[in-house]
């Protein structure tokens, strides 16, 4: 059990209902400062809805309490950049980034010619890294990532998670990320929150290797009591 002072986020009985449809129900979990939490669940489980609720984008019931003054950085799953003639440099400058080269170096993009390239011509991996650089621009202490390796080939996925782990350690930030990849959960995250509209598992990520935990997550929805659970 984590010390109360180590907790950065407390979510209690969170519910989201839109157009008479329950999208999230009775979600409770805590997040420890400086950890990486994976949010896992089948399609339509409400993972993106949960991130949007944490961003205060959706009307919800229950409590979302950040225990200290947080600055959130956010990386969405999808961006529409194919038709916008905006360069990487222009994109980074939207949030007042004064040193785009350093911002890119932070996400391991060292080719300076990328700055003048349009977002629409970047590879999937480059685009995801640019989005992460953008989210890190104003020094957030919490980073929310919605499937950070969408559009990235399998070989390039792990380097992105390695990079995120380094950023977490160096900048002492807390990361909540949505993923479908069990290997990533096991290798690169500390805690796991599995949901299927309600919480189906909440605990250490290492437990995902156990078949009974996988059945609990991917089998018939079976909500677990997490009022005092730690993600």
């Amino acid at each position: 059990m984590a010390d109360e002072k180590d907790v950065i986020l407390k979510v209690k009985d969170l519910g989201v209902k839109l157009q008479n449809q329950i999208l999230l129900d009775n979600i409770s979990f805590n997040v420890r400062k400086g950890t990486t939490v994976a949010i896992l669940g089948p399609n339509g489980a409400g993972k993106t809805v949960l991130l949007r609720a944490l961003l205060n984008r959706l009307p919800h019931t229950g409590e979302i309490e950040w225990t200290e003054k947080v600055k959130l950085g956010y990386v969405p799953q999808y961006v529409a950049v194919s038709d916008v003639p905006m360069t990487v440099k222009e994109f980074l400058s939207i949030e007042g980034c004064t040193n785009p080269e350093t911002a890119l170096a932070q996400v391991r993009l060292t080719d300076k010619s990328l700055l003048d390239k349009r977002l629409g011509v970047l590879s999937g991996g480059q685009l995801r890294r640019v989005l992460i650089a953008w989210a890190l621009n104003d020094n957030p202490n919490v980073l929310l990532l919605d499937e950070p390796t969408t559009g990235v080939d399998m070989d390039s996925e792990e380097p992105i998670y390695l990079m995120l782990n380094d950023i977490k350690k160096n900048q002492k930030i807390t990361i909540l990320l949505i993923t479908h990849n069990i290997h990533i959960v096991e290798e690169y995250t500390d805690d796991l929150l599995a949901i299927n509209k309600c919480v189906t598992y909440c605990g250490p990520s290492a437990e995902i290797a156990k078949p009974e935990i996988q059945r609990q997550i991917y089998g018939e929805p079976m909500c677990v009591e997490t009022a005092r659970g730690e993600a």
Binding site: R52, L55, R57, L72, G73, Y74, P76, Y78, V79, A80, V81, V84, M86, F91, I94, E95, L119, W134, L144, D146
Partner: peptide, 16 residues
């Protein structure tokens, strides 16, 4: 810039 950012991603704009 706000409109362009919202075009790229409404979620991204709202997060800012």
């Amino acid at each position: 810039k706000k409109l362009v950012l919202a075009m790229v991603s409404e979620d991204l704009a709202i997060s800012k």
